[in-house]
Amino acid sequence: MHRTTALVHDISLEVTARDRASLSGAALRGGTRVSITHLGTESADDRLDAAAAARAAGFAPVPHLAARRFADASGAREALAGLRERGAHERVFIVAGDPRTPAGPYVSAEDLIRTGILAEHGVREVGIGGYPEGHPAIADDALWAALEAKVAAVQERGMTATLTTQFSFDADAVIRWIERVRAAGIDVPIRVGVPGPAGVGRLLAFARRCGVGSSAGIARKYGFSLANLMGTATPDRFVAELAGRLDLAHHGDIRLHVYAFGDVQAASAWIASAAERTLPLEATKPA
């Protein structure tokens, strides 16, 4: 299989609960994984409705569970029971969550995984986050230790682990991160996060919020001009460079994960087009 073809096969999409009404019109293949974030500004019912909407549209929902937002084990069990009632429980994505002070006993994603609650409720696949460009609030050594511990915790409980990265604009950083993951003996599937098509200003605002690169660095690597903040940026250049440098035999199972940033239609249209074409690798190789 061609490197680009492999990379754009089975692309996943990330949305928020408020995007649920847009899912029925999304130009995605049946069975596409649709991740649903766990935001403090949305209710539990909103997230359950979004998971149900993704399933009703023929997609595979991947609801996020933020460990620090659960006040107790009952809250986590209630969330999982609600997902199971809607047939949206087999795949979940576990994060620590944004609150600095946990609402209950779970400080980290690993804490929630190690309770065994996920497996008890029929979860088969657990997604874990990765940060190729680092995390603005967590030291690099701590990130790597947590990653290895979470993968081990998932596998020890008989579930399948997958890794999905924060969106990135730096192919060098992503390749280095993937190689370090594989060098650590972690051979699980990896989904590399990329922003869906978005206005340049909006894209930079999300990048600043997540601590991903400087505006000038992002513009240079992603291929747009800071002089035109009203323009639209797509991930084509980044994806083409990444595909051109991946060695499937060495780097393993690598796919893409697209962040919708509120525009499900634009993101899903890009996913559909990417799956049907070969990106112009020759035009984007470094000089």
Rank of each mutant, 00 (worst) to 15 (best):
H64D: 00
I175F: 04
A50C: 15
A149E: 05
A219Y: 02
T115G: 01
G30L: 15
H64Y: 07
E90I: 03
R114H: 12
D247Y: 12
L226D: 07
A103E: 13
H64C: 08
V194D: 03
S74C: 06
A145V: 06
P99R: 11
P105S: 01
I190Q: 02
L13H: 13
T32D: 02
W144H: 14
D263V: 03
R202L: 11
G223P: 02
G244H: 15
P102R: 13
T37C: 00
A216N: 07
G58Y: 08
A184R: 14
V239R: 08
R157H: 07
A109P: 00
E42D: 08
G158C: 01
G193W: 10
P99M: 05
P63I: 02
Q155F: 01
A233H: 08
E90D: 13
A81S: 14
G130F: 03
R157P: 00
E133Y: 03
Y259M: 09
G199K: 10
V62K: 07
A205Q: 00
E110F: 11
T16C: 12
A146I: 00
V212A: 05
P189I: 04
E276A: 15
V15L: 15
G193E: 10
I117T: 14
I138L: 08
R55L: 02
A6L: 09
G25R: 02
H89D: 05
L242S: 06
A266S: 04
L83W: 03
D45F: 13
L143D: 06
Q265L: 09
A6C: 10
F59A: 11
V126P: 06
T232N: 12
V123K: 11
G134H: 03
A243G: 01
D141A: 02
K221L: 14
G213N: 10
